[in-house]
């Protein structure tokens, strides 16, 4: 099971639940998009808050196991992936 860490400002949709387990079908074939769709089925409104014009909301990046993945919604996850939706890092 992959684990999605629900952004705290979306936890109103999950009834305060911080992490949600997601079934991953076939190693390396499940995408972040499918995960978001699954979450949206379970917690209606989830996708609308996280997506913008068929992509992640500007200012939000997907981190899989500690690394930002630039493929965003197209990124593939593994059966034990930890998935975060957090802002990316810039610098000076």
């Amino acid at each position: 099971m992959a684990v999605v860490h629900v952004p705290s400002l979306l936890q109103d949709l999950t009834g305060g639940v911080e992490t949600v387990e997601v079934q991953v079908s076939g190693e390396g074939r499940t995408s972040v998009r499918q995960v978001v769709e699954e979450l949206d089925r379970r917690f209606p409104g989830f996708a609308a808050r996280l997506l913008w014009e068929d992509d992640l909301m500007p200012g939000i990046a997907v981190f899989i196991d500690g690394e930002q993945n630039r493929l965003g919604l197209r990124a593939k996850i593994a059966g034990d992936s930890q998935i975060f939706f957090i802002p990316p890092v810039v610098g000076g």
Partner: peptide, 10 residues
């Protein structure tokens, strides 16, 4: 006009 600056900053 939103654009992604840097590593997904907006």
């Amino acid at each position: 006009r939103m654009f992604l600056s840097g590593e997904g900053g907006v």
